[in-house]
Design a protein around this nucleic acid. Sequence first.
DNA 1: ATCCGCCTTGTGAAATTACACAAAGCGGAT
DNA 2: ATCCGCTTTGTGTAATTTCACAAGGCGGAT
Lengths: 408, 408
Amino acid sequence: MNVHLDPFDRDFESIEAIADTISQILQCPVTIEDSNHRLLAYSTHAPDTDPVRIATIIGRRVPEHVISMLWREGIIQHIMDSQVPVLIEPIDSIGLNRRIAVAIRHHHDILGYIWVMDEYKGIDEQGLDDLNKASHAARSKLLQVQTQRRRREEQSFEFFWGMLTGSMDSEHRIVDRAHQLGITLPKSYRVMIIEFETLLNEKLYEQVLYTILTAQRHRKVLHVRQEQRLLVLIDATDDDIDGHIAGWMLLMERMQQRFGVKPVHLASGLSYSVYIDVVKSYQEAITVMNIKKHLPEETKHLHRYEELGWYRFLPAMIQERRARPMQHSSLSKLKAYDKEHQSGLVSTLSLFLQADCNVKRAAEMLHIHSNTLMYRLRRITDIGGVDLNDMEQKISLYLELKMDQWQS
Amino acid sequence: MNVHLDPFDRDFESIEAIADTISQILQCPVTIEDSNHRLLAYSTHAPDTDPVRIATIIGRRVPEHVISMLWREGIIQHIMDSQVPVLIEPIDSIGLNRRIAVAIRHHHDILGYIWVMDEYKGIDEQGLDDLNKASHAARSKLLQVQTQRRRREEQSFEFFWGMLTGSMDSEHRIVDRAHQLGITLPKSYRVMIIEFETLLNEKLYEQVLYTILTAQRHRKVLHVRQEQRLLVLIDATDDDIDGHIAGWMLLMERMQQRFGVKPVHLASGLSYSVYIDVVKSYQEAITVMNIKKHLPEETKHLHRYEELGWYRFLPAMIQERRARPMQHSSLSKLKAYDKEHQSGLVSTLSLFLQADCNVKRAAEMLHIHSNTLMYRLRRITDIGGVDLNDMEQKISLYLELKMDQWQS
DNA sequence: ATCCGCCTTGTGAAATTACACAAAGCGGAT
DNA sequence: ATCCGCTTTGTGTAATTTCACAAGGCGGAT
């Protein structure tokens, strides 16, 4: 039997057929996934499989914690890099038995993966060779799948962009179109902006999307790419305040670990349930992003429009200030003094206000003796003519200082 | 000499001629003033006069303190009301000798006054009769003066209005036109709005103007009437911060005393020295007025745009808030609680913030025990989820509360 | 009536803060 | 060098604030 006819040198009518063929030859259960670990096909032949395979088939995707583990163990990277099938040792803790995996590639792109459960037998050289051939055979099928997916993506981009810009201005039309495209819109949503340090090129984009889509929560998300940003329509139905954004933060963390890319900022608008309000939520997200970029330190832990507090008025205030420039008399006196004497009264005042006018706290933050701070405050009241027991004045100062910071 | 030919039954070539005629007949010094106590004519004949008359002639108007005194003594009112000449007893404290005064009227309008110094002689019936006749004779002359003044006023209204609305948009044109109209523009100016409770009808307007124009500081002021408002271009050259507005406040007080009319609000824009900026100063004055009307209590002692502090951003913030309505989560919780339990947590919080977060002070203002306030504050932090040691949160609350107040 | 939660006031101890004053460093002006 | 004003730090005291706890009033529900 040295003359081995290549069983994969033919046209397959479907991906399932490929899976079944592999399964028959190797006498093992087989699953084929796309690049995002979504189930494309699985062999029906074998009776007993491990829990991971069952979960994958039931959920139509590899469970998130499995992917996490595979990444952590460096297995996914290995499969992605290797030109030949990779043997994977069982990981009992997650119910993963021994298996062999091979990537399906097209040039340098990963189109998907073939997994072979190899619990008992062990596969010989010939088997591995067959698996490689199967991988090649799967390529053209997966390319079709990919092309189809791309086309659908294009349509969903256009759809989402239409919502974001408000050109889809009738609720009815939006719902209809979503139905047409097979998109399930969440009952309640927010628009979130994820901003990266660099332009979202093809590779980065794929990586980002891979991270998002392999996460359990977000099977399908309306999204659109925009220079350095990814705009996402996130589900706000079960908006448990912290949990949600925290989940995204975690994703971003994972992105960092796996691909070394980390988004700089996350910003989301309010949640709405009427879809024509996507425009609003988007505008709000933009506002949040804008404010975060100008005052990164103070808004470090803010991500959602409703968390902005008074900062949401800052852009309007800045605009007003630009339209009618006017020096705050106390502040300009203090600034003049600072300039002449190289002192830091303004920054001291700023920090003092930030510290809720608590002398002790502020002094600690400044690493100075509290009496020193007291002295400076006295100077501030003397030179600037400020009454630090007057809320009005303190607010005026605080706001002006923040605006100064914004514009610097 | 029973047959007395009326010496005033002829045409006089000027007001001076009338003054001289009276002076000749009565053998006393005579001055004729317009309705605003501005000198129109004086007899040259008599050698010695009292200090008031000298000051009047030198200053071309009756000194302010004299007018004040005459009002206080009820003398001006008396002259205005009386159909016959009024004898005025000397007032040594201001150097006013004995004199006789008669109003020059046209229907019910006062056009001016004739003053006769009557130090030594005492004037008989015949003299008084002559004085009455002189008053009639002066009328036509004064009507001419008044007409002329009215025409000039019309022109100045138009001029000022052009500046206010920005339709006079070239510095050059403004300066030229002012020169043409014989108006001396102040080097540095502000636009001030004086608002009254009622519409500025003809009578009220005259009274207001009378008060302003008889005050020493403001001999001539560009002004324009506008429903309930009088817009004034005030001199800001020697802008000694408090003094200036205080002077106007005094005037308003006087207006109240003399005519029972009191302006409700004073509001002024910034001071500028380039005349095309009148528009700006006017806009600022409008802003001040707007804010004062919405928050009368907190802006009671503010009149000038530069004193507004952070309030100058309020309109922009309100606009932003209206454009993107959003409940402050803590506040709405507190409001809900207040509604259900008929408590006053929100108002307590508001006052507490107003009192610079000083428990003692706030408790006193509320007439409650400071521990009661402490308790309420604890409730506020519990129910509203507010951290009252966080400046950011306090500012958010403060601003939201002010905006609520604005809109209520 | 009785209970219970909510609110107010009072008391006193503990903690914190404000303030006055002293000592000393530092840099510029004379 | 010397003076002077500005600044920082340290010390101790007086005043103020915070906090825990007790006692009692009030109104609605059972």
